[in-house]
Structures are given as structure tokens and as C-alpha cells.
């Protein structure tokens, strides 16, 4: 254990992704990456920086702006036995390629009675908070999580980013790997502490179906994903000063959802706040509330609180964007009301 600890270096989310891709590509020559500006540029959000120089243009393939073309091509390449990793630059761009994602990538294994395996990883950048407005700021966790046949993960911390990306690449099913722009630790965005963290040098895996309790507590459970986990942890620190002990669960996996971790936590805390950087209706907050209402009703002592983007597109102007994306202050307010019930 000590030796592993010594080897741990602090990496950003971006560097953790790159390390995962590099180690896996060294291990398996069937892995290659396709995407827009992933070559010399290194990925707009730093997911592939430096890989072009190491692996060359055959394995790090810049594509035209043809998402249907190259993400559709990943189907044929995967069916032939290769292991394509494709990058959809922004999750917001899913609209131009959704047919390939949900009618083909998600369904072919099922429609073929399990005879065709598609080991595809689709990496895509999500999240707002930097005034990129309605077409470049969405997370869309639920839009992808809604579709049968896709595993969907959204890790928060560099350690999980590396471990879950390696697991995703080794998985024989299609995996949507969502990485949050603010958690990449990029020099040209807000730099937050959570985007830097200890990452073991060697390759390791983290399951794609397990949430992680990132702070233990007894008074209330707060479930978050990516930046909402970060906000929940911030809120929990302040709540602790006021004598409220919050447990924070980092969901990590959108599909499948780790029901057990959530239900076990609520059996202890009896109170639930779910925070989501996606839209309110039909989203993660609704899904988790439904799970708890159906399977953990007896453990609830208060109504469930749902914090999410009200059902509006994400506005440009900073003041309005800050208003619609949930934050630590919203969480603190909700928890304080909730623990009085």
C-alpha cells in the first residue's frame, strides 16, 4: 500500500484522462481514437493532449465535422473487433448524431440477440458555468441515461476519471463517458481545487455502476453528480459549522444508478436532497426521488428536495446563468429547512 501511495501524483481531470487513454492504448493496439480536433490540438477540453505525438495519425484520428459519419463508423469498426474511442466535442452536439447513438450503438447488441458486441467509448464534454450559453453548456445526463443499451458515467474527481475511463475502454458494451469541463483543470477556465487530485501511476479500474460516499454524515443525504458533488461538499463543510452533519454521495454512474448506496444512506439519514446540473423535469432528481419513494419510503422523515436547472435553456449572461445552476448556497438553504421537518 505504501508504495502505491508514494507513487500517487496529483493530476488534473484532463491529465487523468490522458494517462488512462495512453496506458490502455499501449496495452491494446486495437484501441484508437477519432474525434474533432483531438490530434495536434489535443482535444478542445484537453482529453487527448500529447497522444498524437506518441501514437501518430493512424491511432489518433482527427475527423471532419461529421459526427454521424465518424461516430457511425465506430459501429462498423467495433463490429470488426477494433475498440474505438470517439469524442463528441460537446454533449450538446448530440442532436446531429443521436440516430447513430440511440438507434444503432445502443440497440444493435439487443437486436442481434447478443451476437454483435460494440465496445465503443463515446467521450463527451458537459457542463456550464462559463457563459457558453444554451448550445454549449448542457450536461444532458438524463437524455443519455434514458436510453436502454448505453452505460453512462460522469465521474467527478481525477482518481475516478482515470479508473472509470479504463474500465469503460475494457468494457465490451458501449459506454458514454461524460467529463465536466470545469473538472478538467484547464488553464483557460476557472480553476477549482476539485479538478486536481491524487492519481496512482499504474493502470487501475473502478466499476461503472457504483456511487461513492465522498463525505459521511448522519443528518441528511445529498446526492450530486460532477460539479453538483463539488457544490454539495462545499455546502456540507458550511453546514458542519452549523452543527448539521451531511452525507454526500457522488453518483458517478448515471446508468445504471447505484440504488443500494443511496437507499442505505437514507436508511441512516432519513432525509434526501438531490442536486443536478441537468434539467428538472424527467431528470436524475426525478429518477432518484422515484427510486427512494418506491423502495425507501419507510425511511423518509421529510419530503425529498430536488435542485436542478429550472426547465429553461441555459442563459448566456453571467447573473442569469448563476441563477439557474444549483450551487452550495441553494443546497445549504434546502438542508436547513429540511432538517427542521
Amino acid at each position: 500500500m505504501e508504495t502505491i501511495k508514494e507513487k500517487r501524483k496529483k493530476l488534473t481531470g484532463s491529465k487523468a484522462m490522458i494517462q488512462a487513454l495512453e496506458q490502455e492504448m499501449n496495452r491494446d493496439s486495437n484501441i484508437f481514437i477519432m474525434g474533432e480536433d483531438i490530434g495536434k490540438y489535443g482535444g478542445i477540453f484537453g482529453s487527448t493532449t500529447g497522444l498524437y505525438d506518441k501514437f501518430g495519425s493512424d491511432r489518433i484520428m482527427d475527423t471532419p465535422i461529421s459526427e454521424t459519419g465518424f461516430i457511425g463508423a465506430s459501429v462498423g469498426a467495433a463490429a470488426e473487433g477494433l475498440r474505438p474511442v470517439v469524442e463528441l466535442m460537446f454533449a450538446d452536439f448530440h442532436g446531429v448524431v443521436m440516430d447513430q447513438i440511440y438507434n444503432h450503438i445502443a440497440k444493435i447488441h439487443y437486436m442481434s440477440g447478443g451476437n454483435v458486441k460494440l465496445p465503443i467509448v463515446l467521450m463527451t464534454a458537459v457542463g456550464g458555468g462559463y457563459s457558453d450559453a444554451a448550445q454549449h453548456s448542457q450536461t444532458l445526463y438524463a437524455s443519455f441515461g434514458h436510453l436502454p443499451g448505453l452505460k453512462v458515467v460522469a465521474p467527478t474527481f481525477p482518481h475516478d476519471i482515470k479508473g472509470m475511463l479504463i474500465t469503460a475502454i475494457r468494457d465490451d458494451n458501449p459506454v458514454i463517458f461524460m467529463f465536466h469541463k470545469t473538472l478538467q483543470g484547464l488553464g483557460w477556465m476557472d480553476q477549482i481545487d476539485a479538478s486536481l487530485g491524487p492519481v496512482p501511476e499504474e493502470a487501475y479500474t473502478i466499476p461503472l455502476d457504483k456511487a461513492n460516499i465522498v463525505r459521511e454524515g448522519k443528518d441528511v443525504t445529498i446526492v450530486g453528480v460532477q460539479m453538483m458533488t463539488v457544490e454539495a461538499l462545499k455546502a456540507a463543510e458550511k453546514l458542519a459549522e452549523q452543527g448539521i452533519d451531511a452525507e454526500v454521495i457522488d453518483l458517478r454512474s448515471i446508468k445504471p444508478i447505484d440504488k443500494e448506496t443511496i437507499l442505505t444512506s437514507i436508511a441512516k439519514t432519513n432525509r434526501l436532497v438531490v442536486v443536478d446540473e441537468d434539467y428538472y423535469s424527467y431528470g436524475i432528481t426525478a429518477e432518484i426521488s422515484a427510486i427512494v419513494a418506491s423502495e425507501g419510503f419507510k425511511d423518509l422523515k421529510a419530503p425529498i428536495v430536488r435542485l436542478a436547472i429550472p426547465d429553461v435553456p441555459i442563459p448566456y449572461s453571467r447573473v442569469m446563468e448563476k441563477f439557474v445552476i444549483p450551487n452550495a448556497d441553494n443546497i445549504i438553504d434546502s438542508v436547513k429547512k429540511l432538517v427542521k421537518i
Binding site: 459519419g69 457511425g72 463508423a73 465506430s74 459501429v75 462498423g76 469498426a77 467495433a78 463490429a79 470488426e80
Partner: peptide
Amino acid sequence: IPHAVGAALAN
């Protein structure tokens, strides 16, 4: 169509 393009790429 893109599936066949991907198979051709693999070939």
C-alpha cells in the same frame, strides 16, 4: 452507410 465505412476503416 457509416457502419460500412467503419468496417472499411478497420480493414
